[in-house]
Amino acid sequence: MSHPTHADGGHDLPHSHQKHYLIVAAVLTVVTAVEIGILFLPAVNGTWWVVPFIGVLAVFKFGLVVGEFMHLRPDHGVYKFLFMSPMFLALFSFIALSALAVVTYQPFGGGYAITQRDRKAGFVPPSAGGGFEVAWPEDKLKAAFAEAEKGGFAKGKATFASTCANCHRGDGGGMPALGPNMTDDCFKHGGSLAELYTTIGKGVQGTAMPAWSTSMSPDAIRQAAFFVRSLKGKNVAGGLECVGTKVAD
């Protein structure tokens, strides 16, 4: 038979746990207050043990709710098995995922972009020119464009392949839900060289399009803009639908 916890023979009512529950509630409140309060103590927040400490407190609260409120501690072993074996499995996959994230971490996502972690770690990519300057006047840009064209847009092409293709596809045809087609003649943010330069440098707030000025020099951004512009009207096979307005020239 199962594991009796409280006398409950016949129609006798099980005795009440209310006082016990209120004590548990008080403990949970205090522990939560400590967890939050500790972050507001400048002398403490910043020491190495804060993260493990609030982690232990969370696990303690978890155990308290499961053990006392959910009554698992005094309950039948079959319940414990049913709940705790998948719980530990979940814990191990969690630890494995976190370890994998640490092991596979590479600065700049392996070369193509600056992640938030890189920024926090203070990495500055080799190509960064620092700061973002306003676009050159259109005629100066046109001259530089002609120059780049002679070189087959080699620099911009390389940047695009390493940095932009993840979202805009290798041939610029775009990827659903990631980045729009660069080879049609539609632009949401303008197709002139200056507009392209600005869009790439500043990114598009609220979309996946990052502000590349934080990781690329103005010259690299210009070269990327030239290459993007050279894709206009190529209409590669399988490219995404037109988004934005058509730009004639």
Partner: peptide, 20 residues
Amino acid sequence: CMFFGSLIGTYFFYREMSLG
């Protein structure tokens, strides 16, 4: 547990890996 374990694990896997 497994369901939320994977969701929280995925959050941590990608933590601080956002580009923008």
